[in-house]
């Protein structure tokens, strides 16, 4: 499921738009104004730290649990670390000839290629909507946006049947193709194109004899980069988190992304508890890349009202 980016053009009046401001407004913080003379509040800080503790608890647990052997998992204290991390990784590595790494590579492929294509398609559509006036523009935009509200489940069954008709189910295409179109990405790209590409510069490029597509790729795209990184990140996380689409489309476990793979492994663990340590070690290894991506790119997570989205 996880149709992450499901935001909209605000049906809310007075809703402002997500305007790129050149740098991450979230990360800039108000530390400059946090005057030294102000008395810190223990209650406020305490509540924040409690929230942080709650959010870190499962993450800390999975780090500790992945160092335990199968028997220690259910016998030693929850947060008491052990020394079996490397054994567990080796076991995971050996599981069906490194199937786990294949799942990781598949996820990287689905999320990376899917988000890249999605960003390109969104950037083109957003630029077309922002920088041209043409008949039917608003109709096209509103139709594309309405897609945001369509629940993934309504699409899942017919998408499966249509792709089965083309004999594309149980292939990489069946997960990649439906992931490319992102109404939310188009919406954001339109705002970014409108705000960061001045009309005069587009005109100047045309006067210099650049074609429409050259103007877009060589003049507009470089100016839209900060916004496009945000579009890419949203789509990357959406595809990385997606469970229902690959769960429905794929039968061959060599094509699974990590979410479907680990879920299946846990299912088998119900009858073979030895697999539990593999599941836990796999869960730890699978969240490392995404957590690293988050921490390094935090300044790109600027989410304004209109960009409001929800993880499902």
């Amino acid at each position: 499921m996880t149709m992450l980016s499901s935001p909209s053009a605000g049906p809310v009046p007075g809703g402002s738009a997500a305007v790129p401001d050149g740098e991450g407004s979230v990360s800039r913080g108000r530390s400059g104004r946090r005057s030294a003379g102000e008395r810190p509040s223990a209650v406020a800080t305490g509540i924040l730290l409690l929230g942080a503790l709650y959010c870190l608890l499962p993450v800390v647990w999975v780090v500790v649990a992945s160092t335990k052997s199968g028997s220690e998992l259910f016998s030693t204290f929850t947060f008491a670390p052990s020394t079996h991390l490397l054994d567990n990784v080796a076991d995971l590595d050996a599981y069906r000839d490194g199937l786990f790494w294949r799942w990781m590579a598949n996820t990287a492929l689905y999320a990376g290629v899917g988000a890249l294509l999605s960003t390109l398609v969104s950037a083109m559509a957003g630029y077309g909507l922002a920088k041209y006036t043409f008949a039917g523009k608003n109709t096209v935009f509103n139709l594309l946006l309405a897609g945001v509200l369509v629940p993934a489940i309504v699409l899942a069954i017919p998408q499966y049947l249509l792709l089965a008709e083309l004999e594309l189910t149980n292939t990489y295409w069946s997960v990649l193709l439906p992931s490319i179109v992102s109404p939310y990405g188009i919406y954001l790209a339109r705002i970014y194109a409108g705000a960061s590409v001045p009309d005069e510069i587009v005109e100047a490029a045309r006067t210099d004899g650049a074609g429409e597509s050259r103007t877009f790729f060589q003049v507009a795209v470089p100016m839209m980069v900060p916004g496009l990184v945000t579009v890419f990140l949203f789509q990357f996380v959406a595809i990385w988190n997606n469970f229902m689409l690959p769960y429905i489309m794929l039968g061959d476990d060599r094509l699974f992304p990590i979410t479907v793979g680990l879920s299946g492994l846990l299912n088998q663990g119900a009858s073979q508890p030895a697999l539990y340590t593999l599941v836990i070690t796999g869960a730890l290894l699978s969240i490392i890349p995404l957590v690293a991506l988050f921490l390094t790119l935090q300044r790109f997570w600027r989410v304004d009202l209109a960009a409001g989205a929800v993880k499902s």
Binding site: M1, T2, C55, L56, P58, V59, V237, W240, N241, F243, I258, T259, V260, L262, S263, A283, S286, I287, L290, V291, L293, F294, K311, S312
Partner: peptide, 9 residues
């Protein structure tokens, strides 16, 4: 941080 963790995980 939990936003970086897929619902399945």
């Amino acid at each position: 941080l939990p936003y970086a963790v897929p619902a399945v995980i």
